[in-house]
Design a protein around this nucleic acid. Sequence first.
DNA 1: CGCCTTCTTGAGATGACTCAATGGTGGTGG
DNA 2: CCACCACCATTGAGTCATCTCAAGAAGGCG
Lengths: 261, 261
Amino acid sequence: MKLGGNGNQLIATTSIPTKCVHCAVRARALFQGIPPDQLEWTQQYRENQYRAPARARLFSEGQQHPYVYTLYSGWVLLSNSLSDGRTQILRFALPGDFLGFQANATSPMSSSAYAITESMLCAFPKADLQRMMTESSGLAARMATLAARDMAQLQQVLLSTGQKNAREKLASLLLELYVRVRALGNLVPGSDEHSIVFPLSQEMLSQSLGLSVETVNRTLRGLREDQILEIRSKRLYMLDQNKAMAIAEIDINSIAEQALL
Amino acid sequence: MKLGGNGNQLIATTSIPTKCVHCAVRARALFQGIPPDQLEWTQQYRENQYRAPARARLFSEGQQHPYVYTLYSGWVLLSNSLSDGRTQILRFALPGDFLGFQANATSPMSSSAYAITESMLCAFPKADLQRMMTESSGLAARMATLAARDMAQLQQVLLSTGQKNAREKLASLLLELYVRVRALGNLVPGSDEHSIVFPLSQEMLSQSLGLSVETVNRTLRGLREDQILEIRSKRLYMLDQNKAMAIAEIDINSIAEQALL
DNA sequence: CGCCTTCTTGAGATGACTCAATGGTGGTGG
DNA sequence: CCACCACCATTGAGTCATCTCAAGAAGGCG
């Protein structure tokens, strides 16, 4: 499957009644910290739960899309592409993340979203979100917080992409994802003492880091041989976290903290 | 001057009474689109105008800083650094831009800010901003909009940094800045038919694009020889905008639009 | 006028890329 | 249960874009 290509353009939508089951995630994503009395009226707004199968495209760069999403479960990637197919993955979204929010609700999406694993999402009409933001300063402030958080994360990614070499980039990304997944605890199942479930292909890693697939492969081999990190059968093993941190130079505390915002 | 180094750590502060003179910029930056009756109480909050000389450091990555800023005039850069000095410039701020907003008001700054030219800024205590956001959904929504705008811009930068070659990167950055400056009209003085005032050194360009200074220099020569773009005596000349757009593959309409948000 | 920063150019080194081919693995259907 | 297929991972060899090191030229400022 070409990530930069067309893929499955349609969102597989199994519409389910309004009630959201993953309350923990929902609270965290959109309504965290907002007083209950400000939340009641959210019931009058339409929101729907969707199931996106692995490899589904949620929305595409340049196209109109009327919804924003809260990710309940699964991994989703956001990307931008150039006309010749070169694709940059901007971020990997994990449960609790908010997708599709833009400065201007009516303009086309600035990036594409693609479900890496089967995912559950809660869709919210942008028009409603906009109205709700004018009514609740709590919700508007929440959106600002989430945007600022994603911003900080993206800045770290830019530092990696612009300044680090292949080994540093890879260690940064893998350590970041490892920390985020662990910070989310049981929202992302399958973690154990020193490893997490890890559904990303080497192609995705390469498109996230601005490297070729071959370089990713060779660099992963290096990290494995040095007993630092290993990816095996869709799991990421943290073999030596101290060494990984020394190479990556990222602040795992603030990453963990931000994952929980 | 080493950009990654320590430089002038102190902000030169010429405190001026509350009244802001650059009303056009102020409205655009923080309070645009917010009804006047929601704005009256802003008067009770402290805000001060500052003058930062060229090369002043406004705040530093990793340190506490109690203010956010609206940039009135001048160019400011935001950057992140690695421990060995490698520095990535994250964005160039122009008049109307908002600096220093973070998800968590109490955590240390996630990046450094540095005045490229002499700049005027309006400082706002973070604590006040936070209080104001809970009181005014308009202001909170405005913050969300600004954060989303910066986000979209940063995503384009990441696409450049990760996927484009030196020539494409340089064309993208120069064209973007050219369009943003022109979109701001008289807020950034000195533009004429086909050129703008351009205070960035080649070192800054290199740190923004993840290239070496030498490569920037050679690539600039190429663009000059091909009659596409030229930097000469602190001005950027747009010699062939169509060619520049073809190389850069950026959407100048949305850039201009976002510059005015 | 002299100093310091910034720009410019050359030559050689190298990290990462490309092209090409092989090997593994998981899912599907006979 | 096995054979096949598609996708993904792996490895080698050669190339190239960009980096590094080194030196000199050009500007701006006190």
